[in-house]
């Protein structure tokens, strides 16, 4: 099923995407599917296993289903101090 989601990028993913937000139509059912789709579009270098997703008020992994959410936050690890 196609759905429209608003994707918000944090930190290094924002840098690589060249934008803070994008809106897209996707057939992805999980966060991981969505990341792989975006990875192709923006040439993200981080493997999916290192990306966390903000759905609603929770941090979750790639296996989480998108259904019921129209905003997804992509959160890479950050290490600067």
């Amino acid at each position: 099923m196609r759905r429209t989601v608003r994707v918000e990028f944090c930190a290094s993913l924002r840098d690589q995407a060249g934008r803070a937000v994008t809106q897209l139509e996707t057939e992805a059912t999980t966060c991981g599917d969505l990341y792989r789709e975006l990875q192709e579009r923006y040439a993200f270098t981080l493997p999916e296993s290192l990306v966390k997703f903000g759905l609603g008020n929770e941090i979750c992994g790639g296996e989480s289903v998108l259904e019921g959410h129209d905003v997804v936050v992509l959160i890479p690890p950050v290490c600067g101090g």
Partner: peptide, 18 residues
């Protein structure tokens, strides 16, 4: 719990690089 395997240093840049 977030990152089971630690990310490799350099994979997301740091203050001196970015």
């Amino acid at each position: 719990c977030l990152w089971e395997v630690p990310p490799v240093d350099g994979c997301v840049g740091n203050c001196s690089e970015e």
